[in-house]
Design a protein around this nucleic acid. Structure first.
Length: 864
DNA sequence: GCAAGGTC
């Protein structure tokens, strides 16, 4: 009988590999799959077994609302709190679920090696669901491996005491997901719709709210408000100077500073009257500056931002790459404590021959390296350390700088502490006390590898107790208190960590979010300066319901779901309770939105006052205004109508042409990029397609259940089946796209680089270049039914005989034209002529059955 | 177009 099969699943491929190598002792076969699968024979529960180890890539599923709630216009955000939710595959293209189900076939044991935190516990149950195992089934058993690090010792220990997955912890994550989704989406949709419909110069596509991102923004705005409300105060400080051994030394006052000039002047007078300083005491003590604990993600992000000038997003990208390339260990960890079994000697050995630190490492290896500080053990991954030696030439500049820091930090953790003496000399004069401090480094320790942390030497002249010295001058320093600076990114990361906002893996995402949403801007020195929008939002929450932007809001959610994780409260009761509270807050927020709106009114301009007169409305024949801030749109002040435009491109008037259906002036939209297609559109038709049966609108990734248009999606003229308009698909369509079901249409403003583009995909066909004019005719090719085009060649470059310039023909069947066209994008256009021919029969829209449907399958680019 | 959490 074949041995039983054991399937083991890790959270990511690298851990699957470590586990498989450890348990198999390196004797395994690995094969590619959605994620790699490692197979080997071994012993399981005392019996021989066949092992398969593979992994997921984080969460398999994520939660969302069903289709009927996807339509913003048709859903009242308040209803989202009671809406059903469903889990969908987090990354449908990866087919992780299918992979797991396939690998599980024929396996009688499932061992879950997901990371040992709540999220990992939740993924356990996602995996169980995909594999078809049951959490409690005696014949096909499910086990949970609990490991505190990915080391041989811990893996083997976990393997020997397998437990059950913890459903409470998994349910706590389910609860968080549902609460975050419902609260975030409800507030986001409401405030986006409310403010975007009202103000023209709001430069944000979406005005989002979230229990992590909003408090994050709150920190930045709080600092901003401290700065703007700061009232500087003058202060004065006495600074006596003495000349000793030819050096001038400035002394510090015990009172530091005074905010009353008269009192300060009085003290100055007393000191000046005395003139003689007496040394009252000299003390010296040894102090030390401790070596750092191991490097975790948050500290890496902070240092990278403050010392290297890298944003968290960039830092994580660089770290991820260094990790994939094997230069550093896994970069997402909370732990600053090294596991007991950590191989310091091995890691030092990695750097022993490094040209940059080799000598230092040799010193540590021979002189005895130090055991690092204890630090925090979060039970996830060891601190970030170098794994492979690199030099400057092997890495890109930024990667190298980050790698360099990881190495220096690691070496710092196993170096001696820095030791120095602090000498304090105290003086009295006129009844006032002053002092000076000297510093002398005895052991540089870790600061020699992390020189920016070095203690700077401060030498003092020789003094003896009882010395009497004449003051050379008594300065009355006048200063002013200054406001704090804008919040630095590094400070923000500390605040987030302290308040439990986000996790090591998501902190960078939240910071990036508030930048992308245009709530804050990163300025020189990575200072975060809130924008008018960011400030107005936070001030709005502060006056309606300050809880909404305080960090405690995350704490509240965390505390509630922790009850679920501990099994002290029922999952659905907690979710219901928390959602009820938030719904109450939501209803109140909606009711009080006028208060926030008053702040917006002071800051932004109403739609009617925004934008510039642009093109004529077909209904009232007055000019509509173009609002360029995202989402770009036209606003007719008379009709009070908004017409969304395609996004991410430029818009111009199209001569003074109008739409024959509704008299709106036509516009030309050019997509961004040198090869972006340009096309005409009518603002009204674009937003309200006049014809049925157009199933794929331009720019519509998701149109939602009700078929309502998303902002910016619609019907340009190249999708319009109008039978006689010069700009419609019928008039401008030339032939079927070789790549998809679409139709190639003439780009009307592409002169002199004339071209056709597909109205569905990004296929591009270059027409004879440099022609004066190329236009479609009403004629069809008798052979292939393509639209006959008319080309007016330039008289200097015409390929026609006798200098003739006008040529009429089919781009597929006319030899001359055919030789002058070229496919720019898409797969081979010519060799797959059969596909071209087939595609022509299935145009997205076939005008009146005229041509696009009846096609001789033999017709093709014959001569190619 | 929306949250936050994994990871790629």
């Amino acid at each position: 009988m074949a041995p039983p099969k054991v399937l083991m699943i890790a959270e990511k491929p690298s851990i699957a590999l470590s586990i498989a190598s450890t348990i198999s002792g390196g004797q395994m076969h690995s094969r590619k799959g959605t994620t790699e699968v490692h197979e080997f024979e071994g012993m399981f529960n005392g019996f021989p077994a066949h092992f398969k180890v593979t992994s997921v890539t984080g969460h398999v599923f994520s939660v969302d609302f069903p289709a009927k709630y996807q339509d913003w216009a048709a859903t009242d955000p308040a209803d989202l709190f009671q809406a059903s939710i469903h889990k969908t595959e987090a990354n449908p293209k990866a087919h992780i679920c299918r992979h797991l189900s396939q690998e599980a076939r024929g396996c009688s044991h499932l061992v879950l090696w997901l990371d040992c935190d709540r999220e990992g516990e939740n993924i356990c149950f996602e995996v169980i669901q995909c594999t078809g195992f049951q959490a409690k089934d005696d014949r096909r058993k499910v086990y949970r491996a609990r490991f505190s690090s990915v080391t041989e010792k811990d893996i083997l220990k976990a393997m020997n005491c397998l437990v059950e997955p913890n459903e409470y912890e998994a349910l706590a994550v389910d609860a968080r997901q549902e609460i975050d989704l419902k609260v975030g989406v409800a507030f986001t949709r409401f405030q986006t719709s409310y403010f975007q419909g009202k103000y023209g110069n709001l430069d944000s596509r979406v005005i989002s709210y979230g229990p992590c991102q909003t408090p994050t923004l709150g920190f930045c705005v709080q600092r901003y408000l401290q700065i703007t409300t700061f009232k500087p105060e003058k202060f004065w400080a006495l600074r006596p100077h003495v000349m000793v051994d030819g050096y001038e030394l400035q002394l510090e006052w015990e009172r530091q500073k005074l905010f009353d000039l008269d009192v300060a002047l009085m003290f100055q007078k007393l000191v000046l009257q005395d003139r003689i300083l007496e040394v009252t005491d000299i003390s010296e003590k040894q102090e030390s500056k401790g070596r750092p604990p191991g490097l975790n993600t948050v500290n890496l992000l902070k240092i990278a931002s403050s010392a290297l000038g890298f944003g968290p997003q960039l830092t994580m990208q660089l770290a991820e790459r260094l990790y994939i390339q094997g230069f550093i260990s896994y970069p997402r960890t909370e732990s600053t404590a090294y596991p007991l079994s950590f191989d310091f000697k091995g890691t030092l050995g990695v750097l022993a021959n490094n040209p940059m630190w080799g000598d230092y490492v040799q010193g540590l290896l021979s002189g005895g390296y130090h055991k690092p500080q204890s630090g925090k053990d979060a039970g996830d991954h060891p601190p970030i350390t170098p794994m492979r030696s690199a030099n400057e030439d092997m890495l890109e500049r930024d990667s190298w700088r980050l790698y360099q820091y990881v190495c220096q930090h690691f070496l710092g953790t196993v170096s001696p502490d820095c030791k120095y003496t602090r000498k304090k000399v105290e003086f009295s004069i006129g009844g006032e006390f002053f002092h000076c401090i000297g510093l002398h480094v005895i052991v540089k320790g870790f600061t020699s590898i992390m020189p920016w942390l070095a203690v700077s030497e401060k030498n003092l002249p020789q003094f003896a107790k009882g010395d009497k010295i004449e003051v050379s001058k008594v300065e009355l320093f006048e200063g002013q208190t200054v406001p704090p600076d804008y919040l630095s990114e590094s400070e923000l990361i500390s605040l987030m960590e302290k308040n439990g906002i986000g996790t090591d893996a998501s902190i960078s995402v939240h910071i990036n979010n508030i930048c992308e949403r245009n709530y804050v801007q990163v300025q020189a020195g990575r200072k975060l300066v809130p924008t008018a929008l960011g400030i107005t939002l936070i001030r709005g929450y502060q006056c309606i319901d300050p809880d909404l932007c305080l960090p405690d809001i995350r704490g509240f959610i965390e505390q509630q779901i922790t009850l679920v994780a501990k099994g002290e409260a029922d999952h659905s009761c907690v979710v219901q309770h928390v959602l009820e509270q938030f719904k109450r807050k939501f209803i109140y927020f909606v009711k009080q939105i006028d208060n926030m709106d008053a702040l917006f009114e002071a800051q932004f301009s109403p739609l009617a006052d925004s934008g510039r007169a642009f093109s004529k409305c077909g209904k009232c024949l007055r000019y509509m205004k173009y609002i360029s801030s995202q989402p770009s749109r036209l606003y007719c002040g008379t009709c009070e109508e908004v017409y969304y435009l395609p996004q991410k491109g430029t818009i111009k008037l199209y001569k003074e042409l109008t739409c024959p259906l509704d008299n709106f002036e036509l516009l030309i939209f050019a997509m961004a990029g040198p090869e972006g297609k340009s096309f005409p559109l009518c603002p009204l038709c674009y937003n309200n397609p006049p014809f049925e049966g157009i199933d794929a609108l331009f720019g519509a990734s998701k149109t939602g259940g009700s078929g309502m248009l998303g902002k910016g999606a619609g019907m340009p003229c190249f999708l319009c089946p109008h039978p006689t308009c010069r700009h419609s698909l019928i008039a401008q369509g030339v032939c079927a796209c070789p790549e998809c079901n679409g139709t190639l249409v003439l780009d009307p403003v592409s002169a002199p680089k004339w071209r056709l583009y597909c109205n569905m995909c990004n296929c591009l066909v270059l027409l004879p270049q440099g022609a004066h004019r190329i236009s479609t005719t009403r004629e069809r090719c008798p052979e292939c039914d393509s639209t006959i085009i008319e080309v007016d060649f330039n008289k200097n470059t015409t390929p026609l005989e006798d200098g003739a310039t006008l040529h009429v023909g089919c781009i597929l069947c006319d030899d001359l034209l055919h030789s002058l066209v070229e496919v720019k994008h898409g797969k081979s256009f010519f060799k797959r002529a059969g596909k071209w021919a087939r595609a022509r029969g299935r145009g997205a829209y076939r005008g009146r059955g005229r041509g696009f449907g009846k096609m001789d399958p033999k017709m093709s680019f014959r001569d190619f």
